[in-house]
């Protein structure tokens, strides 16, 4: 049966923050519960009916009292809101130097790809102390990537990318759950997160036999799908060059502009006519159904690797993974 614990392990930088907020809320909740229970109990005994003829004096409501017991709880809830929102805001802003990992949910497994090409199913190996940014999507229904020990959860929604990040603080093995009901074997869509000491992680990385980095696989797909025939690197093709595209703002035909992020690249592969770059014809066929979600992620990573390089790639935090920047 295992031993009874009241709080889950704290294994990420968020975990103690969320727990501290929880302690504050618990204190408030216990205080008010005691006040209400105590008052009911005391009044019920103190003013119990002693005769059926009793008629209590009418006590008229006092506006001052009403204001007091509206304003004090309101003040407390605003503390809760601000505190909770600040944690949430930071949870939504992965640091630039975070290690990117791609996650695809499907009934009923988690498929995970590392930058260096290692693939895992229902397991995720990550180095201790390094911020990890997950990019999530789903092949079928909505799933949710939930690691209780990290206090993070993010839905993986088909048709779009979502992100989540955390920084593990304690080596160990932690539960990974799917938290959004996804059908028959929902409760089997679980796995383990392995937080490893950096050197162990290195050993694990080299121990796995990668089939080329994510970007390399993307480059291969780019060849195989004949994308390269039109998207020539020097810009002489019938379609815009993708070199240096990622992160830039693109002018669209028909007016408007869009930032070339993961979502835009994904959309341009699956629904190329949705947002066409100004000066080009909408001649690209759709690759919907021809390339898997994982394949799309590889292509996205390939386009990202064509630059411009994110600042993170050259930051000192690099090196834990040991990969050369040029490899991205």
């Amino acid at each position: 049966m295992g031993t009874l614990r009241l709080f889950p392990e704290q294994a990420s930088t968020f975990a103690p923050e969320v727990d501290h907020l929880l302690y504050f809320l618990l204190t408030v909740a216990v205080f008010f519960t005691l006040v209400i229970f105590g008052a009911i109990f005391y009044f019920a005994v103190r003013y119990r009916r002693r005769s059926d003829q009793e008629l209590p004096h009418v006590v008229h409501g006092g506006m001052a009292l009403e204001i007091v017991w509206s304003v004090i709880p309101f003040g407390l809830t605003m503390v809760m809101f601000t505190w909770g929102a600040s944690i949430f805001f930071r949870e939504s802003r992965p640091p630039d130097d975070a290690l990117n990992i791609y996650v695809v949910g499907k009934q009923w497994m988690w498929k995970i790809q590392h930058m260096e090409g290692q693939r895992e199913i229902n397991e995720l190996h990550i180095p201790l102390g390094r911020a990890i940014k997950l990019t999530l999507t789903s092949e079928d229904v909505i799933h949710s990537f939930f690691v209780p020990a990290f206090r993070t959860k993010q839905d993986a929604v088909p048709g779009r990318y979502s992100t989540s990040w955390f920084q593990p603080t304690k080596a160990g093995k932690y539960h990974l759950f799917c938290a959004e009901y996804c059908g028959n074997r929902h409760s089997g869509m679980i796995g383990w997160i392995y937080v490893m000491e950096p050197q162990d992680y290195q050993a694990w990385l080299t121990g796995e036999s990668p089939t080329g980095s994510l970007a390399d696989n993307g480059a291969k797909l780019f060849q195989d799908l004949a994308c390269v025939n039109c998207h020539k690197a020097d810009g002489t093709g019938r379609c815009p060059s993708l070199v240096g595209l990622f992160g830039k703002t693109v002018q669209l035909s028909g007016g408007g502009s869009v930032k070339a992020d993961e979502a835009y690249i994904r959309e341009s592969i699956l629904q190329p006519a949705a947002k066409v770059v100004a000066g080009y014809q909408p001649i690209m066929p759709t690759f919907q159904g021809l390339v898997t979600e994982e394949g799309v992620l590889q292509l996205v990573e390939y386009v990202k690797s064509l630059g411009p390089k994110p600042a993170a790639e050259t930051s000192p935090a690099e090196g834990i993974t040991g990969s050369t920047p040029g490899k991205r």
């Binding site: 969320v18 929880l22 408030v28 809830t77 909770g84 600040s86 944690i87 949870e91 993070t152 938290a179």
Partner: peptide, 15 residues
Amino acid sequence: LFVACLGIDVHVTDT
């Protein structure tokens, strides 16, 4: 109040 609180709800929603 706990589940309305963003930081906590991320952890406890769907649990």
